[in-house]
Computed example of a mutant assay.
Amino acid sequence: MRAAHPVGLPGVDALTSAPLVLPARAGPDDLVRLCALVRTRLDAGGGSVVCDARALGGIGLDAVELLARLELAARRAGGRIRIRDAAPDLRALLSLAGLRFETEREAEGGEEPGGGQERGEPGDPPP
């Protein structure tokens, strides 16, 4: 009897879901819905939910409150949230508020996920 080999690519989690895209503005009903989505995704498996913060408008306390509540919902479900594509101003405001989040930046064309460029851009000085 042979041991079953995992299906798929090694090191790639097949259960990783698409990022949770956050709206530009979230009202109270949106907040309840987003927290429920975070809990549902964590209940389905995985230790974290990636939240795409690119659309968050008006970097201010509303965005901080949204992210803090999502993190609280995630922690209550035994997980965390990771923030993708957060604007530098938002990251600074979160830090100022004393909130620490795992952040990630989606790779742009010509870049590797680690942030290194595969090739130079036109107009870049030589290495």
Rank of each mutant, 00 (worst) to 15 (best):
D85L: 02
P88E: 04
A97F: 01
T103H: 15
A73K: 05
L93P: 03
A87C: 15
L70M: 12
F101R: 01
A86T: 03
L67N: 01
A74D: 08
A73W: 14
L96P: 05
R75H: 09
R100N: 04
G98D: 15
I83E: 04
I83C: 13
I83Q: 09
R75M: 10
I83T: 06
V64G: 00
G78R: 10
I83F: 09
A97H: 00
A97E: 01
R80T: 14
D85S: 00
A87L: 14
A68H: 09
T103D: 06
R76S: 15
L94S: 01
L94E: 00
F101Y: 05
L72A: 11
A73P: 12
L90V: 01
E104A: 13
L96M: 10
L94P: 01
I81L: 01
R84P: 05
I81H: 00
E104H: 13
L94C: 04
A92S: 15
R100Q: 08
A87I: 14
L90M: 08
G78H: 09
E104R: 12
A86L: 08
L72E: 15
A73I: 14
E102Y: 15
L96W: 03
R82Q: 06
L72V: 11
G79Q: 15
I83Y: 09
L61P: 15
T103S: 11
E104P: 07
V64S: 02
